[in-house]
């Protein structure tokens, strides 16, 4: 386990071997025989699960929390909880009004579930440090947060009502900035903006509606001299150049992209990159050998800015 190895890879540097990050999320709850909703609501269980998982998987880094509803629930979105999954956002306060009209304010560390996250970090951080494992803070990205706030209409509004979309996204960017500050305060070593729905739009839309609203959070991370990344899911081929131009130290993608393509993009822009293990086809369904999949990923990723991780 090596925190520095991971930070070097995330920053696009050469490493002796590829570091490894399990994006364990509520799998941590499974490993400690707890229900996902109980795990996410208890700082003690959160910390216990994360530390246990880091030890079991000999991780070089691990997310403190992988739950993209924290920011949304801290500003008024209601959640549906699941025993074996992350909560889903069930109401959208900006479905018919702007954030200002809805009376939304920027969350503080006392808002919503943030006190639970702070407390979990306080318990987990020293134990992860002892393991030489990086603690990672994951922020819900601006477009995903805007979707939580306004619902699916945001994907129409970016074309039909761009002023409304910009208002929602500007607010979302400010919430991301606040979340970045929280994770800095908690002592995270790496902070990533996680914007899975940003793969579902055109590159020009990404440039206009995602790129600017990531900048406040990226500035917070870099001003604290921490390492930044941008996680995106799905087939993000059409927006990859925009992802590379965001200004983060690196990015991570999922199993749907070709690792050789991603490696070459990362090298072209001098960035760290990771992900791509076949979470569904291999680890979940067993349609592909996990061992062979891992070997293919390691061979393609190499040891120049690459982090071995699920997609």
């Amino acid at each position: 386990m090596s925190k520095q190895l991971l930070i070097d890879a995330y920053r696009g540097k050469r490493t002796d071997s590829a570091p490894w990050v399990p994006y364990s999320g509520v799998h941590c709850a499974f490993l400690i025989n707890e229900k996902a909703d109980d795990f996410l609501k208890s700082p003690e269980l959160l910390a216990k699960g994360v530390v246990h998982t880091a030890k079991q998987y000999k991780a070089d880094g691990i997310p403190l929390l992988f739950d993209l509803s924290v920011e949304a629930s801290s500003v008024g979105c209601e959640l549906k909880w699941w025993e074996d999954n992350v909560p889903s956002v069930s109401t959208h306060p900006c479905s018919d009004k702007t954030p200002e009209q809805a009376g939304l304010t920027i969350p503080t560390k006392d808002s919503g579930r943030w006190p639970t996250v702070y407390e979990a970090a306080k318990i987990a951080k020293p134990q992860l440090d002892e393991l030489d494992c990086a603690m990672m803070g994951l922020i819900c990205g601006p477009l995903t947060l805007a979707s939580h706030l306004a619902g699916v209409r945001i994907f129409t509004d970016v074309y039909k009502h761009p002023d409304f979309a910009q208002e929602v996204l500007t607010y979302a960017g400010q919430v991301c900035e606040a979340a970045a500050k929280f994770y800095v305060e908690m002592g995270c070593d790496i902070i990533a903006i996680v914007d899975p729905v940003a793969s579902q739009i055109r590159d020009t839309t990404f440039h206009e509606f995602v790129t600017p609203h990531c900048q406040p959070a990226i500035k917070v991370i870099h001003d604290a001299d921490l390492t930044s990344s941008f996680f995106i899911c799905g087939d993000c081929t059409r927006v990859m150049d925009e992802v590379c131009k965001l200004g983060t130290h690196g990015f991570a993608i999922d199993e749907q992209l070709n690792m050789n393509f991603i490696r070459d993009k990362a090298r072209e822009y001098g960035l760290g990159f990771g992900g791509n293990l076949k979470l569904t086809l291999s680890l979940s369904l067993g349609l592909i050998s996990p061992r062979e999949d891992a070997i293919v990923s390691l061979a393609a990723g190499g040891s120049h800015g690459y982090t071995f991780a699920p997609g």
Binding site: N85, S88, S147, H148, V152, P196
Partner: peptide, 19 residues
């Protein structure tokens, strides 16, 4: 989908029909 609860993109694909 992968999972409309776990994956936000999948969730909003489903919501595009449900809304």
């Amino acid at each position: 989908t992968l999972d409309s609860v776990q994956c936000a993109a999948c969730g909003y694909m489903m919501e595009s029909m449900a809304a």
